[in-house]
Design a binder for these strands. Structure first.
Lengths: 204, 204
DNA sequence: TTATATTTTATTGTTGACATAAAATGTTTT
DNA sequence: AAAACATTTTATGTCAACAATAAAATATAA
């Protein structure tokens, strides 16, 4: 539709990775499920080569776990203490990002963020929680990217993946959307400490 | 030799990855150097397949940077603020590790750590700073692994790689060895806060 | 001479076939 | 019947050839 965000051009491998991530986050692929390279190759209409690349990639992100000559399976969620560590580290990164930004966001950026907030609300209204997760990630990714480019995104992303955002914790969509809106508003008015506080409140 | 640590069995790909990491950390492969898959394949006597896997792996670790249809080159070192963030995050992980351990290390573990300290000293005496870096990493990895297994190691490792430990900064080998010995001694006597302090002092 | 278009070359991406190792199955022996 | 061994099957690891793409070199036009 007119005015929508331009569809990002993704390589074939990135698209497959994205699909598998979705499957894992949505629970469609449960922990310990073994991935079969041949099956995946057939499913995506490719040979095993690119599939292997994607598997290696997701393994590095912590979503899969691979064993030599055995294959890859969906990794189990982290235990509580590790989960806490992940949250801590991710908070560190996102706070860093906001401090780096300090007013470098343009009106265009804010329009974009507002749009993402709308999408988030929409996803909640449709009760599409996989989509909620995706949009939520894209919100944070936008900020991270603006602050540190691909380099920072690549550092940040594995933590998000390992956290496997658990949106069952959200009581209401409004509350979640509001949490994010607070971040945007603090950024817009240039209140760094308020923004970092809002981010910390959101990442948990 | 008798009594030495058992040589870890590494897959072919892991060995190649290790070699390339060495080359990058030692400066043998300077930033922006382009890697040629065919050349590497010939150098290691393999086909391009496994080489591509290794390249993907090192890209995920932040040592290389890859572009579609163009290839991979050695990534440049991070700017100061990112470097600070990395140090911060790595400290967080290592402090977490020590807190998790709280006295679960056995006499065998301490013997192992003492051995690593000797190796560290030996590397300094030989003025083999690439080896110094490797041994230093193995010291920290040992602790990280004991605390959180492969999962934690995999989270931790990319930060170490991105820091690109530069041991020219060490005025004397003794100082560096001492820093590590302090950590071991604090762990041995079960003084957690002392151990975390020592770790924080070492990671910078 | 510069700028643009075309061809060439080099390098990466992909594929299907083969080698090798793990898992599953079947057989023998106790 | 259970355990140990051998055989078959299945899946992953590796390879060499081919296709597709981007960079480099060359040719053409302004």
């Amino acid at each position: 539709m007119a005015g929508s965000r331009p569809t990002k051009i993704l390589s074939v491998k990135d698209q497959i990775a994205e699909q598998l991530r979705s499957d894992i986050i949505s629970g469609d692929l449960a922990p310990n499920t073994k991935l079969n390279e041949k099956e995946l190759a057939e499913r995506f209409g490719l040979s095993r080569g690119p599939i292997r690349d994607v598997i290696l990639q997701l393994t590095k992100e912590g979503l899969l776990i691979s064993k030599n000559n055995v294959g890859a399976s969906v990794n189990s969620v982290l235990d509580t203490s590790m989960q806490k560590l992940m949250i801590n580290l991710r908070r560190n990164i996102e706070v860093y990002a906001i401090e780096q930004l300090h007013g470098s966001l343009t009106e265009k950026d804010f329009a974009e963020l507002d749009k993402i907030l709308d999408d988030l609300q929409g996803a909640f209204e449709n009760e599409d929680y996989t989509q909620v997760t995706k949009v939520d990630i894209s919100f944070h990714r936008y900020i991270i990217y603006k602050a540190g480019g691909d380099e920072l995104v690549n550092i940040w992303y594995p933590f998000v993946m390992r956290m496997r955002l658990n949106y069952k914790r959200i009581t209401s969509g409004d509350a979640c959307v509001n949490e994010h809106r607070l971040i945007v508003e603090a950024l817009r008015s240039g209140e760094v400490s308020k923004a970092t506080k809002a981010v910390k409140a959101n990442i948990r």
